[in-house]
Design a protein around this nucleic acid. Structure first.
Lengths: 249, 249
DNA sequence: ACGCATGTTGCATATTATGCAACTAGGGTT
DNA sequence: AACCCTAGTTGCATAATATGCAACATGCGT
């Protein structure tokens, strides 16, 4: 396929700037790309307008711009979330004895992108890559409460505990964001309770949720708060690892 | 100034992709930018060719590409070098009792971008933002020996010790890169000796130099080696902080 | 004050990006 | 299995626009 040449030239400029130690001037860029100064000037201005390059105040030479940091960092977090999260999932398993899961928002559902199983004989089996509803899982409720808050139109019940009333769910989500963790009290699978907490990136944007699932016999309602604070603290540690700054609230 | 529209469209696509959780398809991009599918397709292919976007294997949707991480990370290191370096400069002052400086290559000169003063009564005063010659300062020699190695045409003497002979300087630089640190033996200012070492980034590229300056009476030639190893070890620690991988040589 | 180098603007022209339409390829449904 | 529907790619004529030239502007060093 034919490439869009003026776009290509702009991208080539970015690559050129990476390898220049102190930025480049318009003429220098023009020479490298074998185009006219005027074209280089216009391309650089366009790149600057969108923050992909910026001019050094002192020397007026062009340098790579802050937008690249934003985009690069953003991508880095998403790609490596799974890798970063793994040790924290293990820590969750160690501290709670239950299975730990990591999910992100995908197609308005909770996508399980990692799990670490507990060694208990009785444990919750689930599969990486599966999509689960947002409104009746702990991980999903986190993604709803702290991220994209639009509640689905249809609240299909999976157990008799599934919350199918819109306002009840809204109240639950409000409570969730207030206390910092979400609970699934046998709302998706009978006999399974889950607890989850939000994971933030360096810009304080929600990137995913981590949590634990266990049989209702072990994850009792009396111990929910205890599980909650463990999950919250480990999610906070993971967020810090991703560059989340707690001073920004 | 009029912007280059096709470049602008490409950059807009990158911004769009940042805010989409699971990438975007050709049609979706076309709708957002209010252009034809075919144009979107061609723009996306161009971005992909240069690594600024990539297609998800599974869904064929476009995501931000690895090139953004490369460029962003690169820039981040340069911007934050000063911040990262500060504690190491303090450490240098603590361990040597002399003033510590940080410089980068700028316009074929050594640009002092930070300093931490010692508490000694007799100390070297210098100013942040000043440009010094590469061939007769310790920081400059590091930038020459490990970075851009072109020796200036004119070797203007500042003191009677300034090396003005090309081959002598070349021999000094060879020695510098061999032992890992550079010396300025009253070659720029009378009565001042300096020692400096290189700072590398995550890609093993030289980003700057740090070093100390003190009166010749305290920074004696007998103790130069001792100062050298302190500076080298702290420069190495700073490099590691920037992601420099010592396994890569 | 002067000259040199770098950067910006106006404008005519030729390049090229664009939209349309036709075509291809998957995915889901009946 | 045949079908449709959506998403994506390609060919092509046209209109848009990126380009180079030249003139102008600006800043730096001598």
């Amino acid at each position: 396929m034919a490439e869009i040449q003026s776009l290509a030239k702009g991208l080539k400029i970015l690559n050129l700037l990476e390898h220049s130690r102190n930025g480049m001037g318009t003429t220098e860029v023009a020479t490298q790309l074998e185009i006219d100064k005027s074209s280089a000037s216009r391309l650089l201005h366009t790149l600057a307008k969108y923050g992909f390059v910026e001019q050094d105040q002192l020397t007026a030479r062009y340098l790579l711009g802050p937008q690249l940091v934003t985009l690069g960092q953003h991508l880095l977090n998403r790609i490596t979330l799974r890798d970063h999260a793994r040790p924290y999932l293990h820590e969750l398993v160690d501290k709670t004895g239950e299975c730990a899961h990591l999910a992100i928002l995908a197609q308005r559902q909770a996508l399980y992108i990692d799990q670490v199983e507990s060694t208990a004989a009785l444990r919750v089996e689930s599969e990486i890559g599966t999509l689960s509803p947002l409104y009746c899982t702990a991980l999903g409720k986190i993604l709803l409460a702290f991220g994209d808050s639009r509640i689905p139109d249809e609240l299909t019940p999976f157990t008799h505990r599934t919350v199918t009333d819109r306002s009840t769910l809204e109240a639950q989500l409000a409570q969730t964001s207030k206390r910092g963790y979400a609970i699934d009290d046998e709302e998706y699978n009978y006999g399974v309770r889950c607890v989850a907490a939000p994971v933030y990136d360096h810009k304080s944007a929600l990137v995913g949720a981590i949590g634990i699932s266990g049989p209702a016999g072990r994850v009792t309602l009396e111990r929910i708060d205890e599980f909650g604070s463990v999950v919250v603290s480990i999610a906070a540690a993971l967020s810090a690892r991703l560059g989340y700054d707690f001073n920004l609230k």
